[in-house]
Amino acid sequence: MLNPALNLNLDLINKKSIRDGAGFSLLKNGEEYPNLIVLCADLRESTRVEEFAKKFPKQFIEIGVAEQNMAGVAAGLASCGNITVINSFAVFSPGRNWDQVRVSICYSNSNVKIIGHHAGLLTGQDGATHQALEDIAITRVLPNLIIINPVDYEQMVKAVDLAINYEGPVYIRSYREKLPQITAANTPLEFGKAQLITEGIDLTVIVSGPIFFEALNAVSEIENEKGISIELINLPFIKPIDKEALVRSLSKTKKGVVIEEHQIHGGVGSAVLEALAEENYPVKLIGISDTFGESGDPKDLYEKYGISSKQITKKILQFLERQK
């Protein structure tokens, strides 16, 4: 049963794109915060800031295709009391401009929000160059930086709202595809907190980002067909990570699986293992295994690269078999 405290509602029909949630939040906050400045590196439409640019032309800066400069200009603007939000694809920002994010933003504790769009295999047909599968690894190591990986449209709205109200650097991962919904407008997003989706006693499944929906299918199938009771946790905050919630769950179920749309090396699974390093529970990591993606339909890519619900089910069952 879905956790009633979170007002969850699985909606497979009205699909929405996570990136639209970011655009919506910025548009909503533009008026209330005249010092909210949105910057873009020639990807207005793709990053959903087009409407903001039209409605708040004085609060919008087109930088051109120059992500390093965008990070620096944003830090300069932030040093004068502005809340700045930089928008590009995650492979470029924080990919190409990592040094600027490190020094001008994180080391300087600048009030800059980085929205990295088109993350994961969901970027599909554009191919490996545009599928960010490493962004969490490279941002997770930066002090002062908060990292949010929203599960759906509504959670993205709240993530951007939260980032605007938080003083300091934040990285938010965004996705292009239209996807189902699990959270509702009245589902809370608490700073640094994991979300308990379903309670269980045999296994903890931890998932971050919209790969959640593949994981949810797998979890339902295993529960229904094998009678295994699974505790499902959504992890919107990669940093700070909710260590307490993870330890609490694993101390009950004694074993865990982490599912992510990112390289296993350095990603969400690594973050979970760091949090559980002093505990003694086996944890299986499911994600991209040290390979680049390729062009294709996201569903086919999920299958080929081992993160479709079918592949997840298979891997979880193998893991459980070995734990017997």
């Binding site: 390093q68 620096g72 830090a75 300069g76 502005n82 700045t84």
Partner: peptide, 22 residues
């Protein structure tokens, strides 16, 4: 500003000057 890795201060300064404009 924090500096050391070369090239970052010019972007930062452009942002600061843009703030004056805004």
């Amino acid at each position: 500003n924090s500096s050391g890795p070369l090239g970052q201060g010019i972007s930062f300064g452009v942002g600061v000057a843009m703030n004056a404009q805004i």
